[in-house]
Write a protein that binds this DNA or RNA. Sequence first.
RNA 1: GGCGCUAUCAUCUAAUGGUUAGGAUAAGUGGUUCUCAUCCACUAAAUCCGGGUUCGAUUCCCGGUAGCGCUACCA
Length: 501
Amino acid sequence: MADKSLIRTRFAPSPTGFVHIGNFRTALFSHLWARHNGGTSILRIEDTDQNRKVEGAIEYLLRVMKQMGVEFDEGFYLKDDGTTGERGDFGPYLQSQRLALYQKFADQLISQKQAYYCFCSEERLNDLRKEQVALKKPPMYDRHCYNLSEEQKQKLMDEFKASGKNPVIRFFIPEGQTVVKDLIYGHITYENRVLDDQVIIKSDGFPTYHLAVVVDDHHMQITHVIRGEEWIPSTPKHILIYKALGWEPTLFAHLPLILNPDKSKLSKRQGDVATEDYLKKGYLPQVLVNFVAMLGWNPKTEQEIFSMDDLVKQFDLSKVNKSGAVFDLNKLDWISSQYIRLIPDKELADLLVPYWKQNGINTDKSKIEYLTSIAGLEKERLKKLSEIGERTGYFFAAPDYNPDLLVWKKSDKEKTRRALERLSELLKTEENFSQGNLEIVIKKFIAENNFDNGSVLWPLRVALTGQEKSPGPFEVCATLALGPGKEEILMRLNRAIQKLS
RNA sequence: GGCGCUAUCAUCUAAUGGUUAGGAUAAGUGGUUCUCAUCCACUAAAUCCGGGUUCGAUUCCCGGUAGCGCUACCA
């Protein structure tokens, strides 16, 4: 491995139609490790389970990955016209199109007596399992078919053929020990006798994961298998298959799990797990990448905010932790708010448009100056884009509110009404509604009338927003002037005055 | 049940055979302020337990405990 550019990693999801956030992190780390070393990152699709196949899943996956900023060098990719294609010298990259290859090596294993046909029915397997569990023994295949006489095997084979069925093929686990050498977890030793004789070819002729992954990783010259920690227990089986086939195993790097708040494996039951769910909520792709990268990895410095380029530069498998990390929404929100405040107002407004629309707010291009101004006001308050609608409704329709809210805590109803009446008079004749000018004019007004700041600014703000909490009155006023205009502002003031009468 | 992995504040984590065990998020307090947010200052908060090795262990070793993962003709 002297030449790092020879490093080849792959992300190998099943086409299930959604991208689990933990899966995304696996894809990210795999990709980062390849890019960090100037190697190749590959996307292969593992569709060996026909029951789980979902139409259009590959295209969908690719779109999500692209949106997230992860594009693979080899294997499946998204063409300009939006359809999927394959590139690279090791295809096809879809396992269902590689069946002959798997069969070939399964046959080889059979001829080497390192695999065997199994004719056992589901019922027998179930009964066997029940029996073993009842006896508190580990449930494992009992090698019933391995121990059949040649005549019995032949007879069963003939029967299967006659009825159009296929026996499965099981890998024969030899005696001894198998050591998993993991880049993150170190050496893990397994006694082979705890390993089950795994099915490697199913009765539908498809391989199981265990065979397919070994055959493909070998043929695609993968150097580093980067996958979730849940795969550690099957890794010795994979290593044994490599050895039986006379191949050198790849390097393995298992990633710690991403956890629910209760520390179980992150699951749908306890919140959103799909990458798309977070995108829909208005977390920016870079935010998710940044956040997810910090789950299980950190550069050992105090840096918290990382661009994709930073990650490519700094990512190192040797700095990946061993223990699982809880998916902490608070931290996600914090990272998100850090990114949002760095976006230029205009750009932010564009990003917010879909979320305004979701709240039934009509946003058209003519309003872009107005929207940009609103975006600027909310920038430091937003944790995620989807919050915009509920926060800014008053910019698009006069708010409804309880009249009591108009009265500042240190003021009273009468004084508030008086303040608003005079302020209204003042603003009627004012032409310059820039924030700066409003601030000067209104502060001068407060001083001349011997008001407190609060007894004027609070009711002004409430009159305009109807909210207990909101951006300041000068900003809101200046922004409203860009949209519905001065008339609307005066109208809202008058409405407030009426509410106080 | 079997096998395996893991173990530092609530959470993400840093560090070390000798430190006041550091940072960030969240929480709380105070300041600023018309409110919120921002900003600033501050507070509280952790080495799972028990043995060993050692002058000294959170760090190394062993055991326990707990949590999690795996235990399919799913990946």
